[in-house]
């Protein structure tokens, strides 16, 4: 950190870039490792229930686990086809 960089504006330090990258990758890898085993089953059941009412592709239902602070949030994302209609 020289006076030059003080005048011309500081570039982000490489250490802070490292920290940000690690925060992201570690969070993602932890989620991958410790994801509960019931997620695939939950997805299957959801597909079955929703198919009773609407025709959906199994791939259009996504179930994921996210960490938000101290909470774990199960996120369910269902894409309904344009022509969704009661089955």
């Amino acid at each position: 950190m020289s006076w030059l960089s003080l005048i011309f504006g500081e570039k982000k330090s490489t250490a802070s870039v490292a920290k940000e990258r690690l925060q992201l990758i570690i969070a993602r890898e932890r989620a991958g490792q410790s994801g509960p085993d019931f997620l695939p089953d939950l997805q299957k059941d959801l597909v079955a229930v929703i198919s009773k009412y609407v025709q959906v592709n199994p791939e259009d239902i996504k179930v994921g686990l996210e960490k938000q602070g101290n909470y774990e949030v199960i996120e369910v994302n269902i894409v309904l086809p344009d022509t969704a209609r009661p089955a």
Binding site: M1, A15, L22, Q23
Partner: peptide, 16 residues
């Protein structure tokens, strides 16, 4: 190097 922002600090590592 940690002081100069070239190296993760020990507190960074502990936080991670």
């Amino acid at each position: 190097r940690a002081h100069e922002g070239e190296m993760l600090t020990y507190t960074d590592i502990q936080e991670l």
